[in-house]
Design a protein around this nucleic acid. Structure first.
Length: 596
RNA sequence: GGGGAUGUAGCUCAGUUGGUUAGAGUACUGCCCUGUCACGGCAGGAGUCGCGAGUUCGAGUCUCGUCAUCCCCGCCA
């Protein structure tokens, strides 16, 4: 219990001001450290603002001094005393409050702490322990800082959207399941036995319905759920800043959103980014970086060399070229630093993405060098050097495959890997780019049909609309992604607002009229009542904070994240439920899964 | 589903070729110390070497299986 008398008058981190000297104040916080000199005793007290040193002298108050001697890490205290200016030789330059200290005459231990599993000023703690004791992890300044910045970023975005006339509208968590896209989280319905709700993968359809309803400008800080395997930058549940507007063009929304992003960085990081953010077509991104979210903090642009090497005597390349495949080259400045062993490692690295191999050459004295150059005529070698722009000490890394995806994935990741290795992915740099003109469809080999690149409600580009029937693969869309340092921060599109066009797209995606009616009937219906032209986008808030904070793990910006197996090791979630609960829900556990 | 890394004291880690009683730092407990701030000094307690088999006279160490955490592929915007 805390009383008025024990309540803090000042935060620890605020006791750094000259005018406080001589003042009597009350401190609340946790014991960070103690230094017991027999008589004179010091306690470092921590709250979320910082640390202040308390001094206990038996001559001031022997009772308080005795209590201080018994204080241990993470005990919660209230202490009262007078602020003193430290003498010059006693100043601690390592902490912001180092010029001051508080001479305490009264202290109360509000709550003792068990010996904590880790010290709060420790930096290297296994994540397992941190997650198990997440409530203690928050006491570490690093974690507090992450949560603080997440709050500030969200706050700036909310302010910006509010000031620009957006309404925050909540959409349901219990939704209709649609098998497209990611795997749904399902919730059994008690009131409709045998039926299920699905948790939202995103509020996509609802925000479109809000536009039909004339809300005009909508946003939501929306929790989304996808039942897929986790990664360093992926959680089962995550948060989107979800936005939709009516009567707007692609340029309108891009321009507004980059203003928001600029404001977020300016207000919270004092970073000014140059507007407008550059734009790059999807095609250019794929050609130069083999990926639709290029990291533009460094160069190393990829070059297609299929036409050059198909004439060589190197059978691997020749046969790939003849079978309609592609060979691409990654020119690596200072690539001579790569040893034979490095090359072997890189070959293994691209193997992860399906590459059967990786050829390499080095530029020495203006000539190409490696165990395979003999298969390349002088003319071809010259052309390779010219085409790739290779200079002295460059390495040329080649990947060729019949499957284009293998070439793209291998080289895109190789480029990032080497960028990392050579220290080119500078955490202090912020290289934004809008990727625009995405294709509307991609061909699905297994299913022998087209899939939406974005989602089925994305509008085709006006000028490509006549290609819909002739050559759907060539149709570009009004879709756009905002990319920062190789991370996709968010993306969106102008939506289809015409039910006929929407039907046509469903047909191309092999979704029958009947299916479309069952799954999205209400949307088609809504579109037929004077739906305004509209569009929007969604930012991945977690990834945004993660990148701005210079972190490589999404769990560090989420208060209570799940482990890679989707479990919460603090609360032991998921867990079994009682037979009664299952019966009420009309759910039976399959025999072989029970009692696991 | 697959590949890789890790698992030893509360925490962070070391542990040689398989060898006798498994160590360090820190934290913790007790004592000493009036200007420390990673305080210092002395003493002490603390281990299912993730778990289970196996090989061996003998396993922290070798083999197989299994579990957990992390990274990646598949999956997923």
């Amino acid at each position: 219990m805390i009383t008025k008398e024990l309540q803090r008058t000042h935060y620890c981190g605020d006791i750094d001001k000259e005018e406080l000297v001589g003042k009597r104040l009350v401190i609340n916080g946790w014991v960070q450290n103690y230094r017991d000199h027999g008589d004179l005793t010091f306690l470092d007290i921590r709250d979320r603002t910082g640390i202040i040193q308390l001094v206990f002298d038996p001559k001031t108050n022997p009772d308080a001094h005795l209590i201080a001697k018994k204080a241990r890490s993470e005990d919660v205290i209230s202490a009262t005393g007078v602020v003193l200016l430290r003498t010059a030789e006693n100043i601690n330059p390592k902490i912001p409050t180092g010029k001051h200290e508080v001479k305490i005459d009264t202290i109360e231990i509000l709550n003792k702490s068990k010996t904590p599993p880790f010290q709060m000023d420790q930096t290297e703690i296994s994540e397992e322990v941190r997650l198990k004791y997440r409530f203690l992890d928050f006491r570490r300044p690093e974690m507090y800082q992450n949560l603080l910045m997440r709050h500030k970023i969200t706050h700036t975005a909310r302010n910006f959207l509010h000031q620009n006339g957006f309404l925050e509208v909540e959409t349901p968590i219990l939704n209709k399941s649609t098998p497209e896209g990611a795997r749904d989280f399902l919730v059994p319905s008690r009131l409709s036995p045998g039926k299920f709700y699905a948790l939202p993968q995103s509020p996509q359809i609802f925000k479109q319905l809000l536009m039909v309803g004339g809300i005009e400008k909508y946003y939501q800080i929306a929790k989304c759920f996808r039942d897929e395997d986790l990664r360093a930058d992926r959680q089962l549940e995550f948060t989107q800043i979800d936005i939709e507007m009516s009567f707007i063009t692609e340029d309108d929304i891009i321009s507004l959103m980059e203003q928001m992003m600029a404001q977020v960085l300016e207000e919270n990081y004092r970073i000014k980014i140059k507007l407008p953010i550059r734009r790059m077509t999807h095609q250019e991104a794929m050609e130069k970086y083999a990926i639709d979210r290029p990291d533009l903090r460094f160069g190393m642009e990829i070059v297609d060399v299929t036409s050059v090497v198909k004439e060589s005597e190197f059978t691997v390349f020749k046969s790939v070229a003849q079978s309609g495949g592609m060979i691409k080259c990654l020119p690596v400045p200072e690539g001579s630093r790569l040893s034979r062993k490095d090359m072997d490692d890189l070959i293994a690295f691209v193997g992860k993405y399906g590459s059967k191999g990786m050829a390499w050459m080095r530029v020495k004295d203006g000539k190409l060098e490696s165990n395979i150059v003999k298969y390349f005529s002088d003319a071809i070698q010259k052309e390779l050097i010219e085409k790739t722009g290779a200079k002295e000490d460059y390495a040329l890394l080649f990947v060729g495959d019949v499957k284009k995806k293998v070439v793209y994935d291998s080289l895109a990741n190789l480029r990032l890997h080497l960028g990392e290795k050579f220290g080119l992915r500078d955490k202090s740099k912020f290289e934004f780019v809008w990727i625009v003109d995405f294709p509307l469809f991609e061909w699905n080999e297994e299913e022998n049909r087209y899939d939406s690149v974005h989602h089925p409600f994305t509008a085709p580009k006006m000028e490509d609309i006549n290609l819909l029937e002739k050559d759907p693969g060539k149709v570009r869309s009004d879709a756009y992604d905002l990319v920062l340092n190789g991370i996709e921060l968010g993306g969106g599109s102008i939506r289809i607002h015409n039910p006929d066009v929407q039907k046509k797209i469903f047909n191309l995606l092999n979704i029958s009229d009947e299916d479309a009616k069952i799954k999205f009937g209400f949307l088609l219906e809504a579109l037929s009542y004077g739906a305004p032209p509209h569009g929007g986008l969604a930012f991945g808030l977690d990834r945004m904070v993660m990148e701005f904070q210079g972190l490589s793990n999404i769990r560090d910006v989420i208060a209570f994240p799940k482990t890679q197996k989707g479990q919460d090791i603090m609360s032991d979630t998921p867990s079994e439920v009682t037979q009664k609960q299952l019966e009420e829900l009309n759910v039976k556990i399959a025999e072989n899964r029970a009692n696991k």
